[in-house]
């Protein structure tokens, strides 16, 4: 028996076929290769580095947006996931390139391995964290990040793989280019966008809106919350790995909770749940942060965190919903014309 007697004809909208969309994104990624060459040739090293970092920031902010913004699970552990990816990728890369592996192939492999290990960490955090809500979850994830930090700081090496304890890990081969970072950013944004704007992915937002009601509507809230953590952690791990292969050196202090808070700031400023808003915030704040670096030369004090904090306070006062609120800058969903008279109920 059908759910309903056939209703009035439903206005239909033409849609771009999926293979075309997939082809478009693939083409865009491939286009980043010549663009990268162009940038390398024409931009000074500093600007090139800033552009690359902006892309990695987009990866971090967008992946956290899936957890915090879209699913509504307040996580302060993103730097921890990043650290897992950065150290996994960094140490393997250093070791295997040292024994003669091709750096590009090794980096591709280990960036993904780093992401996967971070995803496992996401699973480990996600499962117990399910019992916690709001502030309690934030504290638990904060604790997770600190555990990762302390473990790394007190580990000199694991087998033949160097971790470097408090001094950090250096001598990581430089592999990350703008092309790598942009590819990661495109994949992350497309992934999270497609999850958020699909019938199945509506479950994530439903959990944010009202977890009890979501469960009463047949949503397996456990599954979706853990999935959000796992996917978010994966991309954070990828970003971490790429950071290591960009800076060639990583140290545990980089991955403390201030880093997590910086990423949370991106999500809150961009508009919790708005994917384009958070991408925008990642770009704007990176530029701002670099501009403030010059300021340090004048004031001899690092003002960046103070400005970050001030910005958060001002945003919360003037625009508590963030730059974009929950809205997107553009949204491909075509609305149907549904104003024709409905059948009598």
């Amino acid at each position: 028996m059908p759910l309903l007697a056939k209703a009035n004809q439903i206005d239909s909208v033409p849609r771009t076929p999926a293979w075309m969309l997939n082809l478009f994104w693939l083409a865009l990624i491939l286009a980043c290769y010549p663009i990268n060459r162009l940038l390398e040739a024409n931009l000074n090293d500093y600007l090139y580095l800033v552009l690359t970092r902006i892309c990695l920031n987009i990866v971090l902010a967008t992946s956290l947006n899936l957890i915090n913004g879209i699913t509504g699970q307040f996580s302060l552990g993103h730097a921890g996931f990043m650290a897992v990816g950065a150290y996994t990728c960094g140490t393997f890369l250093q070791h295997y390139v040292g024994v003669g592996w091709n750096p590009i192939a090794a980096a591709l492999l280990f960036v993904i391995v780093g992401g996967l290990l971070a995803a496992v960490a996401g699973l480990i955090v996600g499962v117990p964290a399910l019992r916690l809500r709001g502030d309690y979850l934030a504290i638990a994830t904060l604790g997770f990040g600190e555990i990762i930090y302390i473990v790394i700081r007190s580990t000199e090496s694991i087998g033949p793989f160097k971790i470097g304890s408090a001094a950090g890990l250096d001598g990581i081969p430089k592999v990350t280019t703008f092309f790598w970072a942009a590819t990661a950013a495109i994949i992350t944004v497309v992934c999270v966008w497609r999850l958020a704007y699909s019938a199945k992915g509506k479950a994530f937002a439903a959990i944010r809106e009202d977890e009890v009601a979501a469960a009463a509507m047949g949503i397996n809230t456990t599954f979706y919350k853990v999935t959000a953590f796992v996917i978010g952690a994966f991309f954070a791990g990828v970003a971490g790995g790429l950071y290591g292969a960009l800076d060639q050196t990583i140290d545990p202090e980089q991955f403390r909770f201030t880093r997590s808070i910086e990423i949370v700031a991106l999500v809150v400023l961009g508009g919790t749940g708005s994917i384009t808003g958070v991408v925008l915030a990642a770009i704007v704040l990176m530029i701002l942060s670099e501009a403030l670096r010059d300021l340090k030369g004048v004031t001899h004090v690092d003002l960046r965190l103070i400005v970050y904090a001030l910005l958060l306070i001002i945003t919360m006062l003037l625009r508590p919903q963030g730059l974009m609120g929950a809205k997107e800058i553009f949204r491909s969903r075509r609305k149907r014309n549904l104003s024709q008279p409905a059948p009598a109920a």
Partner: peptide, 25 residues
């Protein structure tokens, strides 16, 4: 869902239609 596979397109289309029918009712 992420890859926008044919089953995703079919189902999302189908259930959006059904949701609208339900809303019309």
């Amino acid at each position: 869902t992420i890859l926008r596979a044919p089953i995703h397109q079919r189902e999302d289309r189908q259930f959006e239609d059904q949701a609208i029918e339900l809303l019309q009712t």
